[in-house]
Nucleic acid binder design. Sequence first.
RNA 1: CGGAAUGUGGCUCAACUUGGUUAGAGCGCUCGGUUCGGGACCGAGAGGUUCCGGGUUCGAAUCCCGGCAUUCCGACCA
Length: 578
Amino acid sequence: MRYSRLLLPTLKENPQDAETISHRLMLRAGLIRKLASGTYSYLPAGRRALSKAERIVREEMDKVGALEILMPAIHPADLWKETGRFEIMGEDMIQFEDRHGKLNVLGPTHEEIITDLARHEVRSYRQLPMVLYQIQTKFRDEMRPRAGVIRSREFIMKDAYSFHATAECLDRTYDHMREAYRRIFTRCGLKFYVVQADPGAMGGSGSQEFVLFSNAGEDRMVQFGETDQVMSAEMAGRKLKGLKLAGEGGANFKELDTPNASSVEAVCAALKAKPIHLVKTMIFAVAKPGEAATRIIAALVRGTDEVSEWKLRKACPGIRLATRDEIEAAGSAFGYSGPLGLKVDQMFIDEDVLAMPKMIIGANKRDKHIVGVTVADLQKSISCPVQIGDFRGANDGDTGVMDGREETLHLKTAIELGHIFKLNIRYSEPMQARFMDETGAEKPLIMGCYGIGVNRIIAAAIEQSSTDQGIKWPSIALAPYEVLLLTTSVNDAELTKASQQIYEELKSKNCDILWDDRDASAGIKFNDADLLGIPIRITLGPKGLKAGEAEVKDLRTPQTHQVPLAGLISFVTNLLSS
RNA sequence: CGGAAUGUGGCUCAACUUGGUUAGAGCGCUCGGUUCGGGACCGAGAGGUUCCGGGUUCGAAUCCCGGCAUUCCGACCA
């Protein structure tokens, strides 16, 4: 491609709207342009980078026998109602009525759609296992799009879905997909971690995330010491000291007015205290979906900590946050809950609470808190069963425990690149997607699903390795072009002729080459070259031409070579295949 | 949805506090010339609903009210 014919509008200055490095550089290097909040156009170079990522994804999917399909972005809302996810996804789904008054949504993901396809097309265990995938635009009406392409309202996702007769077969495919994902991100040159994750809204029995550490990310992760072991902060277990609910004295607490102070922050302001002095009391209900609660429980953590629903769920399965009515039925007031006098069936107390000398707790009355509460007071007043343990998300510096080993936990923020799930029959059962097994019995299809945020690959690559001067593509396989031919001046006929010859020859060798043939000063060309970061840069100037050599810079090493023109083509093709 | 900030040629910004000529600068763009290995220089030129609506005033980019948009923090999130 000739630069003079290309739309590659670089920006000299940082756009005011862009804060994160990948966002800034994608704009400045002319990869993307914003249409509106959370929606971006990909310009030629950006589209090329995306295509390169897509190509890697396709090759690895095809290698594990996945079949590419394409599903609609417009879905009948009825399909989403079959699994209950119409309500769960809620306002994240972009909805519209068509001219016939039928409600449709723009697909944020495709479990329901693929399951519908499967219930029509899959009849027999003989067809299984089957893996289908697509690369397609998804829509989510994000509350707050941010960081350019990292969280946008419209994004490109590779989503794959697998169907199985047995759980063992799902396990095998899941493992193959995980390895395929490793290969994909490795080929993209990304420094990624595979993380045990909470299946969350997707449902199912297990999942792993592929993440890349970056402060532009949104996921809170902890790294186990200096190892490659990473897990979500919510799930990382910590070492306990063995504290007990016991103590002497107490009963010197008093009730104070805290009008309209239901958040930790507001209570601190009202009582001139710090979050570390507070205890948060979270009330949960044990209930089946859509049914009344069978038990009400409470969880206590310090004001600085977050209750880990995941850890709590392990101790007490089937929980969900209690409703306002349920909180009041437990003798409390919404926003002012505390352990003293609370009528719950069980209490789960994070161990750190027991190390607090004095605590501030909710009084179970509107606009009131109790200060000066001690562990002894808790011991005397709590009559329900109590479990002491690890019920909070991990903090930076905690001592983590994994498989009997102990390491300091380092808190990190991360970009989620991909996520793989064992769905089992989460979707096939409610949607009645069944197959006939070898005994002639009808069974729900066992499913897995596997997602990759394709445009996040590009953003993450730039987050991982770039400077304010420009992008440093971590893999040549991702760069919009492999080779940049920089002709320092186009007003020298000899130079232009020699450049064109190099350009044509490399092109004929199937080399992805961009020739900067613009009538612009060398400085502009060098700066644009730095911004775009094309890995191999050939610079040809009048002095070099006279000496019969070109300068070849390999940005990956980064080494500069003076190469005789006679051997230039083979030198570059060797670099590319190395 | 809560908190904060911003909105002025294509881009980055100034003028706003304290209302007062024809709203400026740099970059970019067009034309002419010089230059030609790190955003070079000289000259000429085009380009504006100062986000929108209302109000105050003799007079509003500037002050007031309402709205919209964008960004950041939080809540939320396959």
